[in-house]
């Protein structure tokens, strides 16, 4: 079924895709269902153990190697079907470990969008039988990867990840669970990791400001720019997969479109983020890109406010006079 789908990426013919072996996947699912059936009591304890990760920022947890010795642990299954979308560029080291954790979520599909890889990412990803691979020879940007993955996905819940970071299934499940209980956009909460504002970077300031302008200061610096985050199918349809290319714009459209946007978990992606040439130092390429993205999002918010008459200048002077009069009375 999966293999029958066609993928066309730009005009170039180099985009390919692998399909999971059918015999392998049935064997796998049988084994998995056995674990679920046999582990009712176990599941309850697992739920309890997973709770801290979902409620608070389970940061101490991320210090531990996520995979070690916990493969048998079953996670609370989501009601909706899950599509996991992983965008990656030269991540042969982390992809296999990440895919291992992702498989523990028992997703309906795993879509890995590889762009600009010149290592063995493709071969490593193929070792995961369930992964469908979109291969783009040139660098296209991770947001483009997410957007393409979302276009191809079919699940009720879309979980977006980057290939450069191994996150435990327990931590990932909090995002899936949030969407499962009705959240449309489940974001990663990075607020506990922020430095004092005076020391924060341009990206953080942009994120804080966008949320403020959107009337959601409670979201802090949470943003669709950061992974992991999860979307409901409803959100994807409302926003449109193309908009995912500019994540802050997608977030703005979600909030303006009255979708349910919430913080859903705290994964320390800052510590694990691979340091590259493009993402270190003030004014780096990534900072420029994200600042520009937030500018686009602000354009979108301002246009929305103008069309709904919130910014009309007619009463401006009178309004200011009232403020002054009121201030004077103090």
């Amino acid at each position: 079924m999966m293999g029958a789908r066609e993928v066309s990426v730009s005009g170039r013919s180099s985009a390919g895709r692998t399909a999971p072996g059918s015999s392998g996947s049935t064997g796998r699912s049988a084994r998995r269902s056995a674990v679920v059936r046999g582990g009712a009591a176990k599941r309850r304890s697992a739920k309890r153990r997973n709770k801290p990760a979902a409620a608070g920022p389970g940061l101490s947890r991320s210090k531990r190697k996520p995979a070690s010795g916990r493969r048998g642990l079953s996670l609370p299954a989501s009601q909706g079907s899950l599509s996991v979308i992983i965008s990656a560029r030269n991540e042969e080291q982390t992809l296999p470990k990440l895919l291992e954790q992702v498989e523990r979520l028992k997703p309906q599909e795993i879509i890995v969008v590889l762009n600009g890889c010149n290592d063995r990412s493709f071969q490593r990803t193929r070792l995961c039988a369930q992964a469908s691979i979109v291969y783009i020879p040139e660098s296209a940007g991770h947001d483009v990867g997410r957007s393409l993955g979302a276009k191809l996905s079919r699940g009720d819940i879309l979980l977006f990840l980057d290939g450069d970071m191994v996150i435990s299934a327990g931590q990932l499940s909090s995002f899936v669970a949030a969407v499962d209980r009705g959240v449309d956009v489940a974001l990663n909460d990075l607020d506990p990791l922020l430095p004092p504002f005076g020391l924060s970077d341009a990206v953080t300031r942009c994120k804080l400001y966008l949320n403020q302008v959107l009337g959601r200061p409670d979201l802090g610096a949470s943003s669709m720019t950061a992974v992991p985050h999860a979307l409901s199918r409803r959100a994807l349809e409302r926003i449109g997969y193309r908009e995912l290319m500019v994540p802050p714009r997608a977030l703005a459209l979600s909030i303006l479109g009255r979708l349910r946007v919430e913080k859903a978990g705290g994964v320390n992606v800052i510590k694990q983020n691979r340091l590259r040439q493009g993402n270190t130092g003030a004014g780096n390429a990534m900072e420029q890109l994200i600042a520009g993205d937030h500018a686009e999002a602000l354009v979108c918010v301002i246009a929305h406010q103008q069309s709904s008459g919130q910014l009309s200048a007619d009463n401006l002077l009178e309004h200011r006079r009232q403020i002054a009069a009121w201030r004077n009375a103090l």
Binding site: V9, V144, K151, L289
Partner: peptide, 13 residues
Amino acid sequence: AGFGDGIRRREMV
């Protein structure tokens, strides 16, 4: 606001 689009290739989507 004058900021670039980096390596992002929008035409792909």
